[in-house]
């Protein structure tokens, strides 16, 4: 899949550059986009938005070429970036690092060679490398989720929490969440890693239900995990759990919020479309005089039945 996409993207870029070669030879600039492969729901959505944006921008800006590469591990991502610099002579790099540490030195080398660098979502380990940083707000994601829990349970209550894959992202979210519920009377009675995976979270939730007599609500912290949690609650036939709060903004979950499902009363965004923001802003930076350097933080927003329609993308795979 990743190779195919890369190939298609590469071919399109080649076709366009060949077509435009007569008109504006020296003017053509190349933007390299390097992202992790679609190995889970959120990354799938991110891949979708990256492809959509590249397709759209190629029509808007005839003077821009795009190279899109998806990597299944940090090592491959480093190779991708090196290839882009060596064989395509990119003018700008948009990178969503697989992991911060291994990607920092190669991206730093690219930046030092004079290429514009846009970093998305995860920051690099050394500051000051990127010209533009489009950041997701992980502590904010946890905080918004926590504040919603507090608003739903003013009397306090017992909740269980499913965490993602042990990473900085997960820690920042959970810390933000804990800070937001502090002193509210909401007690986290159990916490385990569901690894942002439906099957794992199903197993963990089944065991939570065996272990605890009373669970008032669940912070699944991710929509894929919420799917597993809901199935486990359903199978156990328990009615003590009032609601499940997921996160990220998967279309099925947004739909349920929109339809007024009481088990899924809200969702918190961590939009995979932030890659689109990054590519668009980079294109603007390359083609106009508008300044785009700095940090652009994409806030996590609470999706409620009232505003859910704005966050519903039926065509996206996520």
């Amino acid at each position: 899949m990743s190779y195919m996409k890369m190939l298609t993207a590469g071919c399109t870029a080649l076709a366009i550059s060949a077509g435009g070669a007569f008109a504006q030879d020296a003017e053509t600039k190349v933007i390299g986009v390097s992202i992790p492969a679609a190995t889970h729901g959120w990354a799938g959505g991110m891949n979708f938005h990256a492809q959509q944006t590249v397709k759209r921008l190629e029509e808007v800006y005839p003077q821009l070429d795009f190279v899109l590469a998806t990597a299944s591990d940090p090592g491959k991502q480093v190779n991708d970036i090196e290839d882009m610099v060596a064989t395509r002579g990119i003018d700008a790099l948009v990178v969503l690092p697989f992991e911060s540490d291994p990607l920092t030195p190669p991206v730093q080398a690219v930046a030092e060679s004079g290429v514009w660098v846009t970093v998305v979502d995860r920051g690099l380990s050394v500051e000051g490398i990127s010209d533009l940083y489009v950041a997701g707000d992980n502590p904010g994601f946890g905080r918004v989720s926590g504040e919603y829990m507090v608003s739903m349970m003013p009397e306090g209550g017992k909740i269980v929490v499913l965490r993602g894959i042990p990473t900085t992202i997960d820690n920042e979210r959970v810390d933000g969440f804990k800070a937001a519920i502090e002193g509210s009377g909401i007690e986290i009675i159990d916490m385990e890693h569901g690894n942002w995976n439906r099957d794992d979270s199903f197993d963990v939730m089944q065991d939570f239900l065996s272990k605890h007599e009373q669970i008032d609500a669940v912070w699944a912290s991710d929509d894929d995990m919420a799917v597993g949690v809901l199935a486990a609650i359903d199978a156990a036939g328990r009615d003590d759990v009032k609601f499940v709060l997921g996160g990220a903004g998967m279309k099925e979950m947004v739909k349920r919020v929109m339809d007024g499902d009481t088990m899924i009363p809200a969702d918190v965004t961590y939009p995979p479309s932030m890659i689109a923001t990054a590519i668009e802003m980079t294109a603007v930076g390359l083609t106009s005089n508008a300044p785009v350097s700095g940090t652009f933080t994409i806030g996590s927003v609470l999706i409620t039945p009232e505003n859910a329609a704005q966050f519903y993308y039926p065509d996206s795979p996520f």
Partner: peptide, 11 residues
């Protein structure tokens, strides 16, 4: 990779 492709990266 086939299942990823069939699902278009999603589910």
């Amino acid at each position: 990779s086939l299942v990823t492709w069939m699902a278009d990266g999603g589910t």
